[in-house]
């Protein structure tokens, strides 16, 4: 239990650190949201100064951070200049959409990589394994962006799936079942892009981890007890290879998240990605900070989840952490 608490402590500390850093960096970045207004001769400099004062931009950095913290406690996370509304509710909707994309593709990628990697490791060096290794190596060298654009072109040419956004026109009028179907259809393209971009890496790691373990003496012993092949692979080898894979799982969430931000922009999925891009271009300060913080939160959450899994999966870690 101490192990998990310590991990939680680390995570919170990390989040606090990131918030301070993003504050510092955004303050160092040139320009503010009001710079463009200043170009506009119709807006009096006094108005701008008043606006700046209203949003607290004229105060020193520590004070601004303190007032941001208090707004965080009130569930606002600052104020968006462009949307003229508190940041938190704005981000929450978008974050939900991003999460939908990330979680779906994480689960899907792993659901494919685990059996495929195990299957391939057992046939190490034979034709199916060689073909898979070769194919994933190809996928690995194609940049995510090119992959996404390629898929987009394919979808536009064929017209099989919707190519952008998250919902069709008239989404509100659909029945609940059709709503679900509509979202699912819209997800196909971005999820495919994300899965294809991470699958090669996951597949290769799973294959290597299983291949490593296949030589272990306890598997030989199990073979000597007449344990059937399937049990041997999925009940013995896979759990024994779990530790590195679980760490990779935490990492893959982060990878898919950052991949997702990019793909969302390309495929106009209404997630954090496009919002963050917009906010950066417009220098919508608190939205940028909030967006970054949300992403960090997902990353840290993913790793925390992986730690939890590790704790659950490996009795040695449980006793070790108890012994400390």
């Amino acid at each position: 239990m101490r192990y998990l608490l310590r991990r939680l402590g680390h995570a919170l500390l990390l989040l606090a650190g990131v918030s301070v850093l993003t504050f510092l960096f955004t303050a160092l970045a040139p320009g503010t949201y009001f710079d463009e207004m200043r170009m506009n001769p119709q807006i009096a400099p006094e108005t701008i100064a008043a606006l700046r004062a209203q949003y607290g931009l004229d105060k020193p950095l520590p004070l601004r951070y303190a007032s941001w913290l208090s707004s965080l406690v009130h569930g606002e996370m600052g104020f968006s200049f462009a949307y003229n509304s508190p940041v938190a509710p704005l981000l929450l909707v978008r974050a939900g959409n991003t999460l939908l994309l990330t979680i779906t593709s994480t689960l899907l990628a792993w659901a494919i990589a685990l059996p495929l990697g195990t299957w391939s490791a057992e046939r190490m060096g034979r034709l199916p394994d060689r073909l898979l290794s070769w194919g994933t190596a190809m996928l690995l060298v194609i940049p995510d962006l090119a992959l996404a654009l390629g898929l987009l072109v394919l979808a536009v040419r064929s017209g099989w799936f919707p190519t952008g956004g998250m919902a069709s026109v008239g989404f509100e009028t659909l029945s609940p079942f059709n709503k679900l179907r509509d979202v699912a259809l819209h997800m196909i393209l971005p999820v495919t892009a994300l899965v294809l971009s991470t699958l090669p890496l996951l597949f290769r790691h799973v294959r290597a981890a299983i291949a490593d373990i296949l030589d272990a003496p306890f598997l030989l012993a199990a073979l000597g007890h007449g344990i059937p092949k399937r049990t041997l692979l999925y009940r013995y080898a896979l759990p024994a290879a779990a530790n590195p894979l679980i760490s990779l799982f935490g990492f893959s969430i982060g990878m898919l998240l950052s991949g997702s931000l990019l793909i969302e922009v390309v495929m106009s999925w209404p997630g954090l990605g496009p919002l963050l891009l917009e906010a950066i271009l417009a220098r919508d300060l608190y939205v940028v900070i909030g967006g970054i913080l949300f992403s960090t939160f997902f990353l840290v959450g993913g790793n925390l989840f992986a730690d939890l899994l590790l704790y659950w999966a490996d009795p040695r870690i449980r006793t070790e952490s108890n012994a400390q």
Binding site: A216, P217, G224, Y236, P239, P315, R316
Partner: peptide
Amino acid sequence: SLIFQEPSLALHPTM
């Protein structure tokens, strides 16, 4: 049945 040389290696570590 076989009993292997090294008892610490012949058992699955997490089962």
